[in-house]
Design a protein around this nucleic acid. Structure first.
Lengths: 224, 224
DNA sequence: TAGCAGACTACTCGCATGTATAGTCACTGG
DNA sequence: CCAGTGACTATACATGCGAGTAGTCTGCTA
């Protein structure tokens, strides 16, 4: 199999052009536009991938793989990574936008990514709780899932709130987000929001029974 | 002008069918399908609205208007409304899904809605701070914006995470979300997440530029 | 009752898309 | 030298879309 050589010339260029186009313009980007971006004809997509769906699947896999690699590289960097949940990567801007678009679209790639984030954050949080850095929760998985949904969702909302800036400089956008977000996030995480505990305790006394407690230690409950 | 009678028969039925279809299937729902849902022909859309874009605009306006009405009705209900930011309405399920789809899509309707939520939450929060219920923030608007983005974004992510359930029973979905979310939200709001203040104070000492090395003034006005 | 206005339908057009087919070109191994 | 393999293109479908047009039906009004 000479996939290496092949992967370096035509096929990979087409795939990367597709990733770029999907991230910049959305997944409705036409095959002709993608092919033009790669400098080839549209029919070549079919020749290499068979269908647009297959191309999309390969793009998803590539992006997820690259994200994992990037994440593995940038692990244990700054304490802020705990809140960020995303690698403060140099060239990961396109990856981030691609993933956010996937989540927004509701495809399996987006779901997969969210679940990976949840699992990862759950590990990190439990470790941080054991080390006494983070306040323990009565339902660790529910808290982590909420935090991940909120973090990713805030990025998605933010992306839709200023759709113009996303195209030019991916990295600048994400950095801008962190600078805008860091202060209130830190405030909320260290000082909370409410001054007294009455709401929480009231909920625990009367409404706690409505909540389903996660009994199993490693059991993964379905996404909510 | 007999707009009333007209509005009750053809045009309104078409518009409501469009709202329903947009909420259930997304804004790519074709005019033919919408017309079929309303029990009329596709050409009638053009006759009444002129274009699909105009129909969409009218749907947006209608939904926003209905949301405002619903919100005004359900104001000052339970304390949980402070976190919810959405009316726990009886029949507002379609409205909610429609709005979430708008936000997800990035249209002007979604932006408008988010801005309305931010302004409203800003008022409520300032009032709550004055009454001593909520911890004050060093940048009230930034905190409120973050909270709104997170709240709406979490709903969007949740919607994309289980796309099947959204269609059948709108209200059940939103209620399920609240029950899943309430405990960790209350925990986070009353107990925070971090055990000590070192991260926050470190950030405050560095002049508020942990990620962005270029130390700029904290003033920010445009939606970020 | 005549006629007119508007709601409504059936049909068509142009366009963009994904898919499929046939063919061209370059390189490579025997 | 020369088949043959695979990357690649040009072109042609088939489909679904929004938009446009012409005409029919209905109900009100003078």
């Amino acid at each position: 199999m000479r996939a290496v050589q092949t992967d370096l010339t035509g096929r990979a260029r087409l795939r990367d052009a597709a990733i770029e186009g999907f991230a910049a313009q959305g997944f409705d980007e036409s095959l002709r536009t993608i092919a033009a971006r790669a400098g080839v004809s549209a029919g070549l997509v079919r020749h290499h991938f068979g269908s647009k769906e297959a191309l999309r699947a390969e793009c998803d896999a590539t992006v997820l793989d690259r994200y994992r690699t990037l994440k593995a590289e940038s692990i244990q960097r700054s304490p802020a990574q705990l809140f960020a949940a995303f690698p403060s990567a140099k060239g990961s801007g396109i990856l981030l936008v691609y993933i956010l678009r996937s989540v927004r679209e509701g495809g399996s790639a987006g779901r997969e990514f969210i679940e990976a984030l949840v699992a990862e954050a759950l590990m990190l949080t439990r470790e941080a709780v054991d080390r006494g850095l983070v306040v323990p929760s009565r339902d660790e998985e529910a808290r982590v899932r909420l935090l991940v949904y909120q973090a990713v969702g805030a990025l998605v909302v933010r992306m839709t709130m200023n759709p113009t800036t996303a195209l030019d400089d991916f990295q600048a956008v994400t950095e801008q987000f962190y600078t805008d977000t860091m202060l209130p996030t830190l405030e909320l995480f260290t000082e909370g929001l409410l001054t007294d505990r009455s709401y929480l305790e009231q909920y625990l006394q009367q409404g706690g029974s409505l909540h389903h407690p996660t009994a199993g230690p490693a059991g993964q409950s379905p996404p909510r």
